[in-house]
C-alpha cells in the first residue's frame, strides 16, 4: 500500500494523498505530499474514522483540478459515489486505495463494527429510542409510543449542528437549517421535529449510512435509524440505493421520461400506519 501511494505521488498520478498518521499519540487524518515522500512510511489505517472525502471537497474548493488520492473504506467509497453524482468531486481526479474495514459484519450495507453504538441506559431504553435497535423494531412501536419516543430524542437536541457538520455528503453553501423561516435562530430546543425532519428529507438520495452523525451527536440521538428509514423509503419508491447506485440521483425526472404529458399515477403502496 505504502509503495503504491509513493509511486502515485512520484509519477504525478496524484498530487496529494489523504490517509492517517499518528500525531501526538492520536491517529489523525494526514495529507501526504510528494515533497515529504518518506512520511508515507508512517501511513496507517486508523481505527478512528474521519470523513477524508469531506476534506477532499474542501481542497477542491481551493484548487479545483487537484488530483487527490485517499484511503477509502467502504463508507468512504459510498460517500465518494454520492459526491461524484452531485458534482462535488470529479471522479477523474480521485484515486482511492480501498481498504477492508475489518472487522466488518455486513460491509456491503455499511453495517460495520464501528456502527455498534454503546449500550444505552435503562431510562433511554424506557422512554427513548435505543440506538442499537433495528429499524423494524422501531417501526413496531404503536403510533403514540413512536411519537413520544422520537420526540424525547429530538428534544434533547442541543442544536450543535454536529450531525450536519460531520456529514460527508452535506455540501450546501448555505444550509436550510440556518434559514430563519424554517428553523428559527435562537431557541433551544430547535423547532421539534422540524430541524430533524428537514435534515432527514435532505438526506434522501444522499445518506450513505456511515453513522458519523450519530457518533458525533453529543446527545446520542439515534440519527442513523432515522436516516436508515430515509434510505429504505428512497429504495422502495425510487428503486435507488444511495451510494451504490451510480446512475442518476433519485430526485430527477429523468428516471421517468421527460414529457409534460399527464401520466397515470401508479398506485403506490398504502402507508403502513394509515
Amino acid at each position: 500500500m505504502n509503495n503504491k501511494v509513493k509511486a502515485w505521488l512520484e509519477d504525478g498520478t496524484i498530487d496529494v494523498f489523504l490517509g492517517y498518521k499518528e500525531v501526538d499519540h492520536h491517529p489523525l487524518p494526514y495529507c501526504f505530499t510528494k515533497e515529504r515522500l518518506d512520511e508515507v512510511d508512517d501511513l496507517l489505517l486508523s481505527p478512528a474514522r474521519y470523513s477524508l472525502e469531506k476534506i477532499a471537497t474542501h481542497m477542491t474548493d481551493e484548487e479545483p483540478d487537484i488530483k487527490i488520492g485517499m484511503l477509502a473504506r467502504d463508507c468512504n467509497s459510498r460517500a465518494l459515489n454520492v459526491l461524484y453524482l452531485w458534482n462535488q468531486l470529479n471522479p477523474d481526479n480521485v484515486r482511492t486505495v480501498n481498504v477492508n474495514c475489518c472487522p466488518s459484519r455486513l460491509k456491503e450495507h455499511g453495517d460495520c463494527s464501528y456502527l455498534e453504538p454503546e449500550t444505552v441506559g435503562a431510562y433511554k431504553r424506557r422512554v427513548g429510542v435505543d440506538n442499537n435497535l433495528a429499524l423494524k423494531d422501531v417501526e413496531a412501536y404503536d403510533e403514540t409510543e413512536r411519537l413520544d419516543r422520537w420526540m424525547y430524542e429530538f428534544q434533547k437536541c442541543i442544536k450543535c449542528y454536529g450531525c450536519r457538520n460531520i456529514c460527508p455528503v452535506c455540501f450546501c453553501k448555505e444550509c436550510s437549517l440556518e434559514h430563519d423561516e424554517l428553523v428559527r435562530t435562537g431557541p433551544l430546543l430547535p423547532d421539534v421535529p422540524v430541524f430533524h425532519m428537514v435534515r432527514a428529507v435532505h438526506m434522501a438520495g444522499r445518506c450513505i449510512d456511515c453513522g458519523l452523525c450519530e457518533a458525533a451527536c453529543p446527545m446520542d440521538i439515534p440519527l442513523r435509524l432515522l436516516y436508515q428509514k430515509v434510505n429504505q423509503i428512497v429504495m422502495d419508491l425510487f428503486d435507488y440505493k444511495t451510494g451504490t447506485s451510480v446512475e442518476q440521483p433519485p430526485f430527477s425526472i429523468l428516471g421517468d421520461t421527460v414529457t409534460l404529458e399527464p401520466k397515470p399515477i401508479e398506485p403506490l403502496k398504502v402507508i403502513n400506519n394509515e
Binding site: I233, L237, L268
Partner: peptide, 26 residues
C-alpha cells in the same frame, strides 16, 4: 415525481408517529 416525494414524506412522518396527516390527491 410529486407522488413519490409526498409518499416519501408520508412514510417519514409515519416513522415518527405522525402518519396520516399528509394527503395528496389530483
Amino acid at each position: 415525481m410529486t407522488v413519490k416525494r409526498i409518499t416519501f414524506l408520508q412514510e417519514l412522518l409515519g416513522l415518527l408517529g405522525l402518519g396520516g396527516r399528509l394527503g395528496l390527491s389530483w
